[in-house]
């Protein structure tokens, strides 16, 4: 897992993505805000959704309450 460690903590890049999701939802916007390649954001979203930190929306993704707590 590149985003969520076995102990439940999130990586620095995952934190940057969660922070970016606080003000953007489209993967392209999140990538720009987090200063990460688009492919990294798309990959991370799968992990963050599986971890319950992010949910898919019509426009992209959004933080769950738990994801917001990790900011």
């Amino acid at each position: 897992m590149a985003c969520v460690n076995p102990d439940g903590t999130v990586s620095a890049s995952a934190k940057a993505i969660l922070a970016a999701l606080d003000r953007a939802s489209a993967p392209e916007d999140v990538a720009a805000a987090a200063n990460l390649p688009l492919f990294r954001v798309r990959s991370a979203m799968r992990e963050l959704v599986a971890a319950g930190l992010v949910v898919a929306t019509d426009s992209g993704h959004a933080l769950t309450p738990e994801g917001r707590r990790r900011l």
Partner: peptide, 11 residues
């Protein structure tokens, strides 16, 4: 850099 698919590079 994590699990990647070909679709992750689309666009």
């Amino acid at each position: 850099q994590g699990t990647l698919t070909l679709a992750d590079f689309h666009g």
